[in-house]
């Protein structure tokens, strides 16, 4: 039982401990270090990492911000699978009382559990993931019907929190580091479906490039691990269709 101050209440029961192996090191070298963390009710993986840093090893480096699944900062590899740690309950992932926590893959390690996400975000820019307006504030607001095919396609993909979990899960990114990846193409797909956007031709050219959508094998790891239950594979399939039509018309 846990008291109001998040400390175990006095009981005769021995405290249950979790054996946690945490990857420590940097881009050059590193390995696993084992810690023993007391089990708590409603404990998240991020709670465990925080416990280690505050009570056992203050040099442990990791990244988090909101703790409620909004900011996308706390992505880590937990028992071999990429996850958002703030909303992953330890009880769901602990296997035989053990937990392994590593940094996200496909990104350069900075230190311990923190990775360099710069290339991940650079690819969002490269994939023309920013809205390019075609109107000024003096123009009429363009009406977008909520039930239109384009709006529904954009809605299905728009709730991405940039956590990098799909990018880490993608085997094609591991094999081809230049590949834009599921998150960037998923973001572009929302804009491909935005009739107000003024960069459609340029965007399709990037999506049709050697780094673009044709690299995706539809393994669906991105859809499997996306914490927000998005389906980037479906977005990429939509991009492939648009790009194929554009290619047949000689536009890309």
């Amino acid at each position: 039982m846990v008291g109001a101050n998040n400390k175990p209440e006095e009981t005769d029961q021995p405290e249950v401990m979790i054996e946690v192996s945490v990857w420590r090191g940097d881009a050059e070298a590193g390995g696993f270090r084992t810690y023993h963390v007391p089990s708590r009710q409603s404990q998240t993986v991020l709670d465990i990492v925080t416990y280690i840093q505050r009570n056992l090893d203050p040099e442990l480096t990791y990244r988090f911000a909101c703790r409620v699944g909004m900011c996308g900062s706390c992505g880590m590899t937990v028992n071999g699978k990429p996850r958002w740690t703030c909303r992953t309950h330890a009880s769901q992932v602990i296997s035989n009382g053990k937990l392994t926590i590593e940094p996200l893959r496909n990104m350069t390690k900075v230190k311990d559990l923190a990775v360099d996400m710069t290339p991940f975000f650079d690819k969002w820019v490269e994939a023309k993931g920013a809205f390019v307006p075609t109107k000024t504030r003096h123009d009429e607001i363009e009406a977008i019907k909520p039930d239109s095919k384009e709006r529904r396609a954009a809605d299905a993909a728009v709730e991405c929190i940039n956590c990098g979990v799909c990018y880490s899960a993608c085997d094609v990114v591991a094999w081809k580091p230049d590949y834009l990846g599921p998150a960037a193409i998923n973001r572009s797909w929302t804009l491909v479906n935005d009739p107000r956007d003024g960069a459609q031709a340029e965007r399709l050219k990037v999506l049709a490039s050697d780094a673009g959508c044709s690299n995706c094998h539809s393994h669906q790891s991105c859809a499997t691990y996306c914490p927000n239950l998005l389906n980037p594979t479906r977005s990429i399939a939509g991009v492939k269709r648009r790009v194929m039509v554009a290619a047949l018309k000689g536009e890309v």
Partner: peptide, 12 residues
């Protein structure tokens, strides 16, 4: 050969 041409050749 571009990746897109190869992709299209394979699908067609």
């Amino acid at each position: 050969m571009t990746a897109l041409r190869i992709y299209m050749a394979q699908r067609i």
